[in-house]
Amino acid sequence: MSYELIAAKRVEQGTGASRRLRRAGKLPAVVYGAGKDAEAIVLEHNPLYYALKDEAFHASVLDLVVDGDKQQVLVRDYQMHPFKQLVLHIDFQRIDANEKINVNVPLHFLNADLSPAVKLQSGKVSHVVTSVEVSALPGQLPKFIEVDLSEAQAGQSVHLSDLKLPEGVELVALARGENATVANISGKASAEGAAE
């Protein structure tokens, strides 16, 4: 799924101007990067508020149209109101299609209920991390990475090096020599499980 956001250049800046925009159902934002100057923009609040609830939105390359000029961006940061359902501000980073970028991508844990650890050894799966930082060209960014736990045994840990990555995608932590744990499987081998 691709996302297209429509924005306009923001002339008035400052706290008072931002408050007036929010009261009018608008969202102040900034877009920066790719060797160009930072640009203050404004978007409609509600479409963006609901898009932020979608997991894939955070790891996707977005098409941002500012006064008719289309550019590819990533969501880099956003601030929410402490108790209202309101996005206060959002930052976008422009990207170059030929340059690798680092993005946090969610992990989807699959088939834990089919694993011998859970079925035969009363084990429980603990997710240590729920997302990982990947490096890839914008066109190769995955929306998520699957972690298949169907073969997991009690007492086993799943590490970054065990993840199956799409072509052209690298884990930033592995490149630094860090092989962190992604999930732990607890439980003891039962007599029936050991006999099989």
Rank of each mutant, 00 (worst) to 15 (best):
A59W: 05
P138L: 07
L64N: 10
V65T: 12
V65H: 10
Q13M: 13
P138T: 06
V42A: 01
D77K: 10
V134W: 02
L48A: 05
A38Y: 03
S126L: 14
S135F: 00
V172N: 01
H81P: 01
P138M: 04
R94C: 00
L160D: 06
P142C: 13
D162H: 11
K143G: 06
M1A: 08
L149H: 04
Y50P: 00
E133F: 03
T130Q: 08
R20K: 15
K36M: 11
Y3F: 15
A97Y: 04
E55W: 02
L163R: 08
S150I: 12
H127L: 08
D148T: 04
L114N: 09
S186H: 13
K9N: 09
L86G: 04
V42H: 00
A180F: 04
V87C: 10
K26H: 08
E178V: 10
A189F: 10
L52I: 01
N111Y: 08
S186M: 08
G16A: 11
S161F: 07
D67I: 08
L165C: 06
E192F: 09
L88F: 07
L171W: 05
H81E: 04
L163G: 08
A56V: 09
V66Y: 09
E192H: 14
S122E: 14
I145E: 05
I41K: 01
N46A: 06
Q72R: 15
A195N: 12
G177M: 09
P82N: 09
A189I: 11
P116K: 02
R22D: 00
S157Y: 03
A195M: 12
D91G: 06
L5G: 03
I101T: 13
A112Y: 00
E146F: 05
G16P: 12
I95W: 05
L120N: 11
E167F: 07
L64C: 12
M80V: 09
E196A: 12
M1Y: 14
E146Q: 15
K36N: 12
L137D: 14
N102F: 00
I145R: 07
V30K: 04
Q79V: 02
I95F: 07
R23S: 11
L107R: 05
Q79C: 01
F83H: 07
E99N: 10
A175F: 03
R19F: 01
P82E: 14
V132G: 09
E44W: 00
H45V: 00
D91Y: 05
V128A: 12
D113A: 02
R19Q: 15
K119V: 11
A195W: 07
R94V: 08
E39Y: 04
E170N: 12
V182E: 03
Q156T: 01
E196G: 10
G193F: 05
S122H: 14
A195F: 04
V66D: 00
E146S: 12
A189Y: 13
L174M: 02
D113I: 04
Y3E: 03
E99K: 15
R20E: 13
Q72P: 03
K119A: 03
K124N: 09
L21I: 05
H45Y: 01
S186E: 11
L64M: 07
V75M: 00
G33T: 11
G33N: 03
K84P: 01
E4C: 06
K164D: 08
H159F: 06
N111A: 11
V30T: 08
L5W: 13
